[in-house]
Design a protein around this nucleic acid. Structure first.
Lengths: 335, 335
DNA sequence: TTGTATGCGTTATCAC
DNA sequence: GTGATAACGCATACAA
């Protein structure tokens, strides 16, 4: 697999390699029509393919970006990635994906690798632990965009759901339907932005309605222990009449609990989940959800990153909030 | 963001860049302990990061692979990608993902880009249309592994489900439960490997059981028209008693149909689906599925590719079949 | 219009 | 043990 270079093409076409380079970069003004044709021929005959690596070394642009996320298996991440890849493809960029698994040292390793690979920019769903590294990049003016999670004091543009509003939508939908004892189910840790903000929004919304937000009703647990946690929650003297699942994974757990305990929804318990799970319509009864515009978020993140790469002006410290959307189905209606 | 190079490190440490290079590549035998220490210092103080691009240009290895698939939103692809990324990460490779959307020209464009980027190898869920390009790569001995789909006459190692067996499992499960009129629901086109083979397996399995496989019972349609197609199927003089969904997307359609027409499962209609959908346990009744080991497939694909890259012996023309697994739930039991 | 020379940041081959 | 120096494949300023 001997590689054919620009020199081979030049020889074949009987010109110098600069001329070929001109041709390859579309600067046709600088050559005769016949030369151009000869080069075209030579390129085809030799099956020549420019070596992007060499070009990158020279131009200091790789036309590649890196995306660091927790886990591509999460449907939000998958959608974000898909949207990012779409706009990148359109702009001639390619994307390297990195599953950091919410592991700071893995995240750090990926950042280092991406930088060593000279990627033109990075989109990340960051953990809080590499804040120093991110800060250094920011100081160097390195193109960087965050998604889903905000890191305080870093001033990096971030694309995220309007989490408080999403939680408020849940609460309002339930109170409108007459529910008063409303609990929230969340995964741990609760410190990451979306969970934190949704819990805040939940509390505020309850207060707005003149309801008290007791800590008892905020049920947090790691995924594996969620069934136990739910059992405790429902064993309170005053068990909730409705539960808000903070994201799709929690929602799955909640539904499993409902099913195993043969609770009637919404009769025994109303439920509503943030994130639009694929089978919301298929469940019995259909599930009310708050959808977040994952594709929009991904698209805008990619667009912003590319703008930064191109050195166009992008307001940094710019947290863009995306609107949640209530999809009303039967699981939250009046019982 | 002025880049600090190996030369800066050399100056700082008071040695030549060759020595630094030695150091960076771990050939410590060729230097004194003090030099080594000085270089280490210099690297840290300058925050030096080797430029992988330059290294790649010299070594003709990028430690990067490309993965071309139809759509990362499909759960099979997502799992495969995740597994690939895992083993690549462990081996120091990074992965560029490409959503070709089953569009041959997009696929071709991605292949060209990946080659231009000098990726060390490619894993693809190929369309049939770029067979010539793939053949050329194969002839050049370029590291290439296929997943999910087999291309006849190309002799490229392929990792895929034992599709016929999967279909047979469905049929057997249903006949064991007394069903005789068994239909199959599939997306179009039916020419791609998994669909084709599953349909074959379905036919054979029926014959094995002494049942006739009528064309009437093989319902194929694009996703959007599947509801109509199902209506037709169920309107036959002899409608099926059971339907096998050929993959998760078809299965979703089938379940939607069931729900909208308030059919009782498995009383009115037994159902079973290939691919393990996430809510199989949550549906009412729980859904019998045939799971395919997507992670294993991805892992083995990546392992095989890396072996090829390292020039270790890999049997090509080696189609590795992975075992489907029946997860028996209520939707296929005796009515 | 086309050609020459130089550099991008590394690695590798040899001298010293 | 260490240091020049020549590649790697391409882009570009400048000369012709």
């Amino acid at each position: 697999m001997k590689t054919v270079t620009i020199i081979d093409v030049a020889k074949r076409a009987g010109v110098s390699k600069s001329t070929v380079s001109q041709y390859l970069n579309g600067r046709y003004e600088y050559m005769g029509a016949d030369t151009r044709e000869r080069i075209k021929q030579a390129v085809e005959e030799l099956g020549y393919r420019p070596n992007t690596i060499a070009r990158s070394l020279k131009k200091k642009k790789t036309k590649t970006i890196g995306v660091i996320l927790a886990n591509i298996l999460y449907s939000f991440s998958t959608k974000v990635i898909r949207a990012i890849e779409d706009v990148c493809n359109r702009e001639g960029y390619q994307v390297i994906i990195c599953n950091a698994d919410d592991n700071p040292s893995k995240e750090k390793w990926y950042i280092e690798m991406l930088l060593a690979k000279q990627v033109d920019g990075i989109i990340a769903i960051p953990t809080k632990s590499n804040i120093d590294l991110y800060r250094k990049l920011k100081e160097r003016n390195y193109p960087l965009v965050f998604v889903d999670r905000y890191i305080d004091g870093l001033d990096i543009s971030t694309m995220m759901l309007h989490n408080e509003k999403a939680a408020k939508m849940c609460v309002d939908e339930l109170t409108d339907n007459g529910y008063e004892r409303i609990a929230m189910l969340t995964m741990e840790p609760i410190s990451i932005t979306p969970r934190f903000e949704r819990i805040q929004g939940y509390k505020k919304a309850l207060e707005d309605k003149g309801l008290k937000a007791t800590e008892d009703y905020i049920a947090s647990a790691p995924l594996k222990e969620m069934q136990t946690r739910l059992k405790e929650l429902m064993a309170l003297k005053q068990p909730p009449q409705a539960i808000i699942a903070i994201n799709d994974l929690s929602f799955m757990q909640l539904l499993t609990f409902v099913k195993e305990n043969q609770l009637e929804v919404p009769g025994d318990l109303a439920v509503i989940g943030i994130d639009d799970i694929s089978f919301a319509d298929l469940f019995d009864p259909p599930l009310t959800t708050i959808a977040q515009p994952a594709f929009d978020i991904g698209r805008e993140a990619a667009a912003a990153l590319i703008q930064k790469i191109n050195n166009r002006y992008v307001m940094d410290a710019d947290i863009r909030r995306f609107e949640p959307r209530l999809i009303r189905r039967a699981s939250s209606t009046k019982s």
